[in-house]
Design a protein around this nucleic acid. Structure first.
Length: 256
DNA sequence: ATGACCCCATACTGGGGA
């Protein structure tokens, strides 16, 4: 079975790209981020003829937004990350599918909004860790897929691509990411490509042609799923198309 | 970092992204 995550940077603009991705790889479940539309504006019917059903969590104002697109049955478990009252930002979706629990997430960037913007990012990471710990305690096979907005190590960005003060590489961001791994989660792309894990994001402009990117979209797997992991890839074809997202899809394959 | 991106919206300029 194949699971994927794709930050589309506008769901409506990226319908052709997502359709081509679905046709190329036939993933069973795809978690989307940065819909940049309201729930009712998500183009769910654009994928129905390919056999996919969708559930979107949009947001007013053209910000954030996450969704699941799947060709297998799924149940939506949650639409907001627990732990913070009145969090209006659409950054989390949890589904039950294929006998596992799948979290789709769009972590706050943390570079805007000053100190409070970065504090919100760190709180979000702590809330994510608490949720993951709970699901693991229940014994649920868990996959966390999404745009984490964290380069876990210096190997996860083109040298000098970001200043040391950037919220994607700051020590507190990386420590919070490691704290997720300490729960027993496996970074799928890194474990299968220990020396040469590919980027998942390239800034618009010359970054893709010169391959100066970042690895910020991740698939973290609980132990039983990591034992079934046979492939983890970045679909760079999606990034090389016309009018692409600045992210490429990350896909993992698990033994049935 | 953003003249040299892109996307959205209380739009013809500004905020957010990473």
């Amino acid at each position: 079975m194949r699971l994927a995550t794709f930050n589309v940077n506008s769901a409506r603009r990226r319908v052709p790209h997502l359709r081509r991705f679905l046709e190329r790889h036939s993933p069973d479940v795809v978690m989307l981020q940065e819909l940049k539309c309201r729930t009712e504006e998500f183009p769910a019917l654009e994928f129905a003829d390919l056999g996919y059903r969708a559930h979107a969590i949009g947001q007013t104002g053209g910000r954030n937004g996450v969704a699941v697109v799947a060709r297998v049955p799924f149940e939506v478990i949650g639409e907001r990350l627990p732990g913070e009252a009145e969090d209006a930002q659409a950054r989390w979706i949890e589904v039950a599918a294929l006998g596992m629990r799948i979290g789709g997430l769009y972590l706050p960037n943390g570079n805007s909004g000053g100190d409070e913007g970065y504090a919100y990012k760190l709180r979000w990471l702590a809330r994510l860790r608490a949720l993951a710990a709970d699901r693991l305690e229940l014994g649920l096979p868990l996959a966390l897929l999404g745009d984490f907005n964290v380069c876990p190590t210096e190997a996860d960005l083109y040298p000098g691509a970001l200043p040391e003060t950037d919220a994607l590489v700051r020590p507190e961001s990386r420590a919070a990411f490691r704290a997720l791994l300490w729960l027993g989660l496996t970074d799928a792309l890194r474990v299968l490509h220990p020396q040469d894990a590919p980027w998942t994001y390239w800034d618009y402009g010359a970054a893709f042609d010169t391959n100066r990117g970042l690895r910020i979209d991740h698939a973290l797997l609980s132990a039983e799923l990591a034992e079934r992991l046979v492939a983890a890839t970045v679909d760079t074809a999606a990034r090389s198309e016309e009018q692409p997202s600045d992210h490429a899809p990350v896909m993992i394959e698990l033994r049935d």
